[in-house]
Computed example of a mutant assay.
Amino acid sequence: MLRRVEHVMGFPVSLRIDDEGAWDAVADEAFAWLRAVDRRFSPFRADSEVCRLDRGEPAAGAVSADLAQVLGLCEEYRTATGGAFDARLPGRGLDPCAVVKGWSVQRAAELLTAAGARRFCLNAGGDVVVSGGPWRVGIRHPEDAGRVCAVLEVTDGAVATSGRYERGDHILDGRTGRPATGLLSLTVLAPTLTEADATATAAFALGEEGVAWAAARAGCEVFAVDAGRRVVRTAGVPMAGVS
């Protein structure tokens, strides 16, 4: 069994593996991958691949396969939301973080699975991938950091939340360039964190219409609190309890 916490990509990442055995080398590999992603894809590091691409170096056709995949996902969500989700907002540099986080943590989870881990929880700043549950995943109350507003019971899958409570109005609606304020928080349960995290951010950018948009995506379940403090959830959300 293993328990480890490291600060990566600007937030705490915790790993718990409940399978018996020696997992330190596998954990080292997973965290090394996340640190490499931060170096390569951060929009805040002048020497990252993202920043170099944004400056026009290298040419667009010379990007790595990983960055090409991330940019393809960004374009997929931009198109699906009619531009509400956009990694290239006017007046700002290229910022694919809303896709990179979930994509990279999902890849780390896949490293664990490939190494034989069957029961684990990988938590990246509140966005979670679990395997071999059931695991209980709390959704933070959007107006009270000391409370949860729901608890999900998840066996295998991922949970991601977008909200205004940690960083304020940081998610912008790409159609207007203004902060998205129609929701207080929106949580997505999906088979992978790649899908859960990007869908949560894209849906939040859409505002109130984002709840139905996210719920219509294959494999996604949604729990949301709108600006009027009304709770909306899809029928398939695996509730373990509500406070």
Rank of each mutant, 00 (worst) to 15 (best):
V128W: 07
V159D: 09
A180W: 08
D169K: 09
C97G: 12
R233G: 01
A198T: 15
M239L: 15
R136M: 09
R175D: 14
C97K: 10
A98H: 06
P134T: 04
V151F: 12
G207Q: 03
F11Y: 10
T113A: 15
L183F: 11
H170E: 06
G163A: 01
A224S: 10
V225G: 03
A150W: 06
W33T: 03
A124N: 06
T194D: 08
M1F: 08
E166F: 08
A109Q: 05
E221S: 10
T176I: 02
D66M: 02
A198W: 09
G82L: 03
S48D: 11
V26G: 09
V151W: 14
G236T: 05
A84T: 01
R92F: 14
L94T: 04
D28E: 14
V232R: 13
E143M: 07
P96G: 05
R217C: 10
F223E: 10
L2D: 05
G116N: 14
R178H: 12
A190P: 11
G72L: 04
R147H: 07
V242L: 14
S243R: 08
L2W: 01
E208S: 11
T192L: 04
D86N: 15
R118W: 03
A108Q: 05
L206V: 02
D28L: 01
A227Y: 04
V26I: 08
E143P: 05
P191V: 00
T161L: 02
G138Q: 08
V222F: 11
A87W: 14
G207A: 04
M9S: 06
V105Y: 09
A36R: 15
R3N: 11
A36N: 15
G228V: 07
V5L: 07
G133M: 03
R229E: 12
G168E: 05
A32E: 14
A212C: 04
G21Q: 09
R140I: 09
G126T: 03
R16G: 08
A25L: 05
S243D: 13
A202F: 12
R167A: 13
A65R: 15
D197T: 02
A117F: 11
R229Q: 09
E195N: 10
V105P: 08
G56I: 00
S131A: 15
L34F: 09
R136I: 12
T113S: 15
A36S: 14
M1V: 13
F44Y: 13
A114M: 05
